[in-house]
Design a binder for these strands. Structure first.
Length: 802
RNA sequence: GCGGGUGUGGCGGAAUUGGCAGACGCGCUAGAUUUAGGUUCUAGUGUCAGCAGACGUGGGGGUUCAAGUCCCUUCACCCGCACCA
């Protein structure tokens, strides 16, 4: 019988769906396993072969867990709000809702052809009002706790999307999505206080199993630093507060720098002799886009304030104050003390403006370059700190400053609050009403969802307002608080909103009373295993941890972290080694692969292609190897015998493979798991036959990777009622993983000279005796002085002879 | 500049704690079989050399009986951040 994937695959997909075999059980007393992939954005292009890589990986884990007796939840849905759909709608004059429906239908069909064991009864869509009702509800809770606030601020503005971007969405000074220039614009924006959670977002990384690189990236992004704030008195009698991580170097501060936007400049405008030059510098700095700023990043510029000086609080010395754009208004206090001897930027600035450089930590050559890597140095030129180590000096100076009331220890973060409004149509409306009398008033919860009204045009308005702003009858409303005239907020939420909590909705997707029932959340959370892309480390992954912590604080969820374990997949590249994209013309459509080779082959190849965590190029030749493997497996049916045991000569191969495949799946080494199965099938076919028991075990091991063909073989060979329905993941016996005889290597002076076949449990003396009497070895050591003899059990013998 | 990562045959990639480098697969070579052919099977396939043998995991140095793996140094590429005081 020929292997016909086109008949087999749809057949089993239908059986699984009809029987609902992948539906997670409610109120189960089994142990639960919640596997999660990042739900896709249903774009107009459809799936490419990169999408199924993570889906297949966690499908393998999920299927294995089911065979191990777990109650598994493996859901999928659609992250369907977003700009590409909206832009498509603008261009083609189709409602984004319709576009979304079409795209979802296509994606769904494509994904279903792969035989992923998703529980489709839990499917969600972020654009569904029944879904975004709860996105809005969470926003209102944030608002009530003061974590959502509106602020007039300078924001990143994409000139093409006519829309505000979060810091995270600006890449090299241009818009992450469309590549257009991003400028600064002062606008009133909704903000979320993610900074309030900065400490916990770092510290709680200790509670979870994430790859180290993900943890470090999040830590660096949040950027916690420990230092001190110090007050400097000025000649005008004012106080300039600075932030520094090096309070120990305070005696080396020879000037100060404040950012061009620092508010104190306005206060001093009447006193400054060179106010025109200062104004000019401010204007130039304001005009620079982020892109220009980074381009000239290393070239220090600035203007000395003529007419104001500051006093170094520890030694009373009078020092000048500069403005320079190398000091950022948004970090720390927007003002620094400059210690050119021990900070590279200060050093460059000091050289350029010919300012004194005073060494305060011994060990460097501060006239040649800044001595920054000086944590083990000893303090000099620093009064009462002299002779102390840097660490001691830090402690001592903070004590001193605190005692005098002119400074204190301070922790700072690079993380900024999250800009949460977008001036676009295709997003969740922000459920807030503006009332002249009452201010910002939340839409009452019983009026949620606040649905997105239909508009004539999806284009942002000329003045940068959301298209919703033109919907007069929707915008004009009454204040829920005082009943007076009021208007609705017309901004919508960013795409990250819906994806910040979707894993909670999967648990209980049709609940009308809550985002999910308490019992269900308690049973299913946290997600046991979440796989996703590295590119979301500082975006989605951070945002959703933040929301989850907030929900924990208000008692909605019972634990502080949403994801117990996170893994990351590498990209699948085009066959030319470049990223797959339409413009490069190297996109591979999975439909064609499924059609030609079948879903099982495609799944195997996606997993066999290389290390799951690394990117790998798609090779249209290589996939044939996986197809051959499936056929070799299929053909085992032709050599099937009735024996109900594992033959002795294959026993250790089987036990080793069971062990390895299990271990490799848990450690995302799918490529070597498949290699082990290929090696085993080679061993089996070499014997010319296969027993029933052997086929049964092999079939279960292969099932998570190639679910259709294994079910078909199971049925054809009358092994039972079906793998999903009946089988159990096999166990192995450690004792049986060992062979009776093994081959050990004999080295002389570290070079391999012979190989011996010996009893597995041979001891050192016997092994050495055999080695020395070996015909190849004996002449090599004859008459020589044996200096050392090494025996590594089960591996090798090394004789060192001179 | 800082942080993280990678470098192994013609290609994708293997290699618990330092212990036979190149598993598994692609490709290639030869042979067999079937077909007109893409199928399948068998054998071979790191490099140099006819063999013995020597060399070989980006380069250089070191530790060790033994190094892809540990240490020092250097180069190349990729990703993230980018004046965060």
């Amino acid at each position: 019988m020929r292997y016909d994937h086109k008949a087999i695959e749809p057949k089993w997909q239908k059986i699984w769906e009809d029987k609902g075999v992948f539906h997670a059980e409610d109120n189960s007393n089994k142990d639960k396993f919640y596997a999660l992939i990042e739900f896709p954005y249903p774009s107009g292009q459809g799936l490419h072969v990169g999408h199924p890589r993570p889906y297949t990986a966690l499908d393998i884990v999920s299927r294995k867990r089911r065979l191990q007796g777990y109650n598994v939840l493996y859901p999928i849905g659609w992250d369907a709000f977003g700009l590409p759909t909206e832009n498509y709608a603008i261009k083609n004059h189709i409602h984004p809702r319709i576009v979304t429906q079409q795209n979802v239908a296509r994606f769904k069909k494509q994904i279903q052809s792969l035989g992923i064991s998703f529980d489709w009864s839990k499917e969600i869509n972020t654009t569904d009002p029944e879904y975004y009702k709860w996105t809005q509800w969470i926003f209102l809770q944030l608002f009530k706790k003061g974590l959502a606030y509106k602020k007039e601020m300078s924001v990143n503005w994409c000139t093409s999307c006519k829309c505000v971007l979060a810091n995270e969405e600006v890449v090299n000074g241009v818009c992450e999505r469309c590549g257009s220039e991003v400028v600064h614009k002062v606008k009133s924006q909704w903000m979320l206080k993610i900074t309030e959670y900065a400490d916990r977002l770092i510290d709680d990384l200790d509670l979870v199993d994430y790859p180290e690189r993900v943890k470090t990236q999040q830590k660096n992004w949040i950027g916690r630093s420990y230092g001190a704030e110090v007050d400097f008195k000025t000649s005008t009698g004012d106080t300039l507060t600075i932030y520094t991580t090096r309070p120990d170097t305070l005696f080396g501060a020879t000037y100060m720098v404040i950012s061009p936007e620092h508010p104190m400049i306005e206060k001093w405008s009447g006193i400054l002799n060179n106010i025109d030059a200062v104004r000019e510098y401010q204007a130039a700095a304001a005009k620079k886009s982020d892109f220009e700023r980074t381009e000239v990043a290393k070239d220090k510029t600035g203007v000395k304030l003529d007419g104001v000086t500051a006093i170094n609080p520890v030694n009373g010395k009078e020092i000048p104050i500069f403005i320079s754009d190398y000091v950022l208004v948004s970090y720390g206090t927007g003002a620094i003390m400059a210690v050119p001897a021990h900070d590279t930027r200060d050093w460059e600035f000091a050289k350029k403006f010919d300012l004194p450089i005073i060494e305060v930590v011994k060990g460097g050559e501060v006239e040649k370059e800044a001595f920054t890597n000086c944590s083990t140095g000893i303090m000099v030129n620093s009064g009462f700190l002299d002779g102390k180590t840097v660490e001691e000096a830090k402690k001592a100076i903070i004590e001193y400053l605190t005692e005098k009331g002119i400074g204190h220890a301070k922790v700072n973060f690079k993380l900024r609050d999250w800009v949460f409004s977008r001036q676009r149509y295709w997003g969740e409306p922000i459920p807030i009403v503006h009332c002249d009398k009452c201010g910002y008033v939340p839409v009452p919860e019983d009026q949620l969802p606040l649905t997105l009204p239909d508009v004539e045009s999806y284009e942002p308005t000329e003045n940068g307002e959301s298209p919703l702003a033109n919907m007069t009858e929707w915008v004009e409303t009454t204040c829920p608080h005082c009943g007076g005239k009021a208007h609705r907020e017309t901004d919508t939420m960013p795409q990250w909103a819906g994806s910040s909590w979707y894993f909670l909705r999967y648990i209980d997707p049709h609940n009308k009373e809550a985002l999910a029932s308490k019992e269900a959340i308690k049973y299913w959370m946290p997600v046991n295993w979440y796989n996703g892309g590295m590119e979301h480390t500082t975006l989605h992954l951070l945002y959703s941890r933040f929301w989850y912590k907030f929900l924990y604080d208000i008692g909605v969820v019972p634990n502080p972290e949403p994801y117990a374990k996170r893994t990351s997949h590498g990209m699948i590249l085009g066959s030319n080694g470049e990223k797959m994209s339409k413009s490069r013309g190297n996109v591979v459509n999975p439909d064609e692969v499924v059609d030609e080779y079948g879903a099982d082959t495609m799944r195997l190849y996606e997993m066999f292609i290389g290390d799951f965590e690394k990117s790998a190029p798609w090779n249209p030749q290589s996939i044939k190897g996986c197809r051959r493997f499936v056929e070799r497996y299929w053909n085992l049916q032709d050599i099937l015998t009735d024996d109900d045991n594992i033959r002795p000569e294959l026993e250790s191969s089987f036990h080793k493979t069971i062990k390895k495949v299990g271990y490799d799946i848990e450690n995302i080494k799918f490529n070597t798991a498949i290699a082990a199965l290929m090696a085993l099938i080679n061993d089996i076919t070499a014997t010319g036959s296969i027993t029933k028991k052997e086929l049964e075990i092999f079939t279960i091991l292969l099932n998570p990777f190639a679910p259709h063909v294994t079910e078909e073989v199971w049925q054809q060979s009358k092994l039972g009622d079906g793998i999903v329905a009946q089988a159990q993941w096999p166990s192995y016996d450690e004792a049986k993983c060992k062979d009776d005889t093994i081959e050990i290597v004999v080295q002389v002076n570290g070079k391999v000279k012979a190989k011996l076949t010996v009893e597995a449990d041979i001891d050192k003396d016997a092994a050495l005796a055999q080695a020395k009497s070996n015909e190849k070895i004996a002449p090599l050591i004859d008459g020589k002085n044996i200096i050392k003899e090494i025996y590594v059990p089960g591996k090798l013998v090394n004789i060192v002879a001179k």
